Simulated scan of single mutants.
Amino acid sequence: MAINCIVQYFVTNVPFVLVDGGRWPHSDFVVVNMDGSRHPLPLTTVFHQLQPITASPYTFLQALFGHEYPVGLLDEEKILPLGKDITAVGMCSFKKGIPEIKSCKDLPYFLSDMTKDQMIVHLAFKSKILLWGGIACGSLSIGILGYAVMRNWNRWKEWRQNRQLQQQRQAAISDADTQNAAEEEETGDVPDGELCVICLMRRRRSAFIPCGHLVCCQLCAISVERESTPKCPVCRQEIRNSVRIYDS
């Protein structure tokens, strides 16, 4: 059996032997060190036999409650394919004057029944799959992001339009209230204890909520409500709105 050693882009056909336990062969062979290798080996199954185990009456309950229970014993033997070249890809060094090849976790292969050209074709195919998969995922992500942006933009435009309409309605209602209040306000002879604390001209007609202070006329109360942070002019407590007070 021979092995194709890929070293510095050269392919050499040499005999090889696998070692285990530190036993080094004759120098005519290339040592393939399997220590620490996680790559699968190109093995061929030469013997395969499954011997079922007789189940006990409690097997069903054990399987039902998640307990592991063996259902059979597998007797299998695998060997390297006879009369077939195997390619070794790894780190090449000399130990005790004997060339040695070790696996490398950064390399996609270690022992394989593929040739160098087949490995290149296989890696190119996997690279294309990763490339087109990345392009597809990226396009899908961009599409989802664009859809989310457009949806939020439309929602923001709709919210802005509704807010403008609401502000226009509130402004119209406030103007109407102001006009009505101006028509109803008394500007005649008002006692000092009943004058508005802001304008000092009209009678106190509006009480603030929640503090309940009756200290402003309706026009001044409306102007206070239109402030960014409306507060009672007496106790400086934040107010929600005002209520028109009528005399009986």
Rank of each mutant, 00 (worst) to 15 (best):
M1S: 09
I3Q: 03
I6S: 03
I6W: 11
Y9M: 04
Y9R: 04
G21I: 08
R23P: 01
F29H: 09
V31P: 13
V32W: 07
G36W: 03
S37M: 01
L43S: 01
T44C: 08
T45C: 15
F47I: 01
H48D: 14
H48N: 12
Q49H: 12
Q51C: 09
T54W: 01
P57N: 03
P57Y: 02
Y58G: 00
T59P: 03
F60E: 13
A63C: 00
Y69M: 13
Y69C: 11
P70E: 10
G72V: 01
L74M: 05
E76C: 02
E77C: 00
E77A: 07
K78N: 04
P81L: 13
G83C: 09
K84N: 04
I86M: 13
G90I: 08
M91N: 07
C92R: 02
K96P: 01
G97M: 00
D106L: 10
D106P: 01
D106G: 06
H122Y: 00
F125S: 13
K126I: 02
K126E: 14
L130N: 12
W132H: 04
G133V: 04
G134M: 07
I135T: 09
A136L: 04
C137L: 14
L140I: 11
L140V: 11
I142G: 05
G146W: 08
G146T: 10
N152Q: 13
N154L: 09
Q161L: 02
Q161V: 02
N162K: 05
R163M: 14
L165Q: 02
Q167I: 04
Q170R: 12
Q170F: 11
Q170V: 07
A172Y: 06
I173C: 08
S174C: 08
D175Y: 10
A176S: 12
E183M: 06
E183S: 07
E184L: 15
E184P: 05
E185I: 15
V190C: 13
L200P: 08
M201P: 01
M201Q: 10
M201A: 12
M201L: 13
R202Y: 10
R202N: 14
R204V: 15
R205N: 01
A207Q: 11
I209F: 01
C211T: 00
G212T: 09
H213S: 02
H213T: 04
L214T: 02
L214N: 05
C220Q: 02
A221S: 15
I222W: 00
E225Y: 07
E225P: 06
T229L: 13
P233G: 06
C235M: 01
R240Q: 06
I245K: 00
Y246Q: 05
Y246V: 11
D247Q: 14
S248N: 13
S248T: 11
